[in-house]
Nucleic acid binder design. Sequence first.
DNA 1: GACCAGGCACATC
DNA 2: GATGTGCATGGT
Length: 220
Amino acid sequence: MAHSKSIKIIYEMLMTQYGHLQWWPAQSKLEIMIGAILTQNTSWKNVEIVLELLISSDMLSCKKIISSTDEKFAKLIRPAGLNNVKTKRIKSLVSFLLAACNGNVSELQSWNSSVLRSSLMNINGVGPETSDAILLYALNKPFFVIDNYTRRMMSRIGISPLRDTYDSWQSMFNTAINMDTQIYKQYHALIVENSKLHCRKSPSCGGCPLNRICDYAATQ
DNA sequence: GACCAGGCACATC
DNA sequence: GATGTGCATGGT
């Protein structure tokens, strides 16, 4: 893939700017999985509020979630928005977890990765991005998470796959980074961090490493 | 008051 | 296959 070298260089530039980020800290794999759904179209700040609520009310367990009423659960996760939709989605995920491993999420780590990804994608409300976030951050599997930040930032630099599909974006990164789970985690975190701090609208804001990255990309 | 935030399902063309 | 829309809240 023609962009592999650039993708590696951009990673180094972002690392120089931000260093190692402690991203997606959580007390349990289930917390990460539920966070992955809560964060859909929602700022992480509001997700944190809800995760704290779930912890403090001792609701971070598959069996407790599945046995709570939709109304009660929706009220609990309300600060993260889309609460009725997300109640259904989280319950669908939890149903899968109970059926697949009786809620012992660690057991999923021994599953074949592609089988597991297909299973996750079959859950109502779990699309490719949520599925890959779960695989990468909860289960340490090498699946690069492609979100809008990633597409926007890389497109602006001039790096995009031939076809603008999720799978094409993902395989572009897979080829460049060679299935390294730790770098996948860090790279995605760096992209989001940079996008949050800079360049939401204009690529020419002060102090943004993206300007230097664009300069670099223009020489390639 | 408009716009955005770490998407997805579904309908329609 | 591409595009549009509903879902909902909280911050800027």
